[in-house]
């Protein structure tokens, strides 16, 4: 690559990671623009990781005011009895992230996620959304896919000890080293809407139970018009009822979505910090891969459950 060289400052700061992914990757990273909406613990972990990695810019979107709960889960917001003095979560996170790496341009974009149009997303190479409703997830994903340039779309959600990452790189090709030669690999991703529309019984056997469980809870939140993550133990009966309906519709055995698993997701929807750290780390790595074109990108779901400790990749797409 004949791009400009990294500055001396960049070389010194990024020395250890350049040894992992190379100068070209670092150069690409420094020219990339990332958008993140929904700044709870997991998204914040991700933000920290890519600011440290040295992306070009990071745009934050979360107009929510700082609450005690937000303070408790967010290491980017300094403790303040006045709850951040009226600033939004995005504004307060922005200040801390700028401090992490002066070479990254961090800014805030106000507004509701669903109000951003297709053109808005054209400014970015990567869009990451977290803790949003099913409808918003589908719509932002579709907007990204409408653009002629590739805007990588990711969603990440953490419900207590479980987490899910969804990846849509649309059409993605990358170079892969096989033995001595470098071959070009091509991947075709489905949108989130397409992926979850695939009938459950046509999915490969032994797909992570978490995949189904997350769909049930997501659906529940949608029909009940809840805010994301706004469920409690009182909802369990109705969630189980919905599970039965969905299983019937998909001809899936109910045991594939155990009561106990749903209970965990519904009763304690708070993010569990160690799980956020794991998800934020995996997502950070994936975004770095997609920007740098180095390494096999994840296709297209990732699940982590602290109870069994497995971090599993599932390919949910029509062959």
């Amino acid at each position: 690559m004949n791009g400009e060289e990294l500055t001396e400052q960049e070389t010194a700061l990024y020395d250890r990671q350049i040894r992992v992914w190379g100068v070209d990757a670092q150069r690409r990273l420094s020219k990339s623009h990332i958008f993140v909406s929904g700044l709870k613990g997991t998204a914040v972990e991700f933000c920290k990781n890519i600011v440290l990695a040295g992306v070009g810019s990071l745009t934050l979107n979360d107009d929510n005011p700082v609450t005690e709960e937000a303070l408790a889960a967010n290491f980017l917001i300094p403790f303040d009895e006045n709850m951040g003095g009226g600033g939004s979560i995005a504004e307060l996170c922005c200040d801390s992230l700028k401090d992490f790496n002066p070479m990254v341009h961090v800014s805030v974009e106000k507004g509701d996620l669903s109000s951003f149009d297709v053109d808005f997303f054209e400014k970015f190479d990567v869009v990451v959304i977290s803790c949003c409703l099913l409808a918003a997830k589908k719509s932002v994903n579709e907007k990204c896919r409408k653009l002629s340039k590739r805007v990588a779309f990711y969603s990440v959600d953490c419900r207590y000890s479980c987490g899910e990452i969804f990846v849509d790189l649309h059409k993605y090709s990358y170079m892969k080293k096989k033995a001595d030669e470098t071959v070009e690999c091509q991947l075709q991703y489905p949108s989130f809407e397409e992926a979850i529309a695939i009938p459950w019984r046509s999915l490969p056997k032994r797909v992570s139970k978490l995949y189904f469980a997350m769909r049930v809870v997501e659906r529940f939140e949608e029909v009940e018009r809840r805010k994301p993550g706004e469920t409690s133990v009182d909802d369990l009966t109705n969630v189980l009822k919905l599970r039965n309906e969905l299983c019937l519709a998909h001809s899936l055995n109910e045991s594939q979505i155990p009561d106990s698993l749903l209970e965990r997701l519904v009763v304690s929807p708070k993010e569990f910090p160690p799980v956020s750290a794991v998800l934020g780390g995996i997502l950070g790595q994936e975004v770095i891969k997609a920007i740098s074109g180095k390494g096999d990108p994840l296709k297209n779901f990732f699940f982590f459950d602290a109870v069994d400790g497995k971090g599993v990749i599932e390919d949910i797409s029509t062959p």
Partner: peptide
């Protein structure tokens, strides 16, 4: 040693 933030976080 090659080191990146993401692995350490995980």
């Amino acid at each position: 040693v090659h080191a990146v933030a993401t692995t350490n976080a995980i």
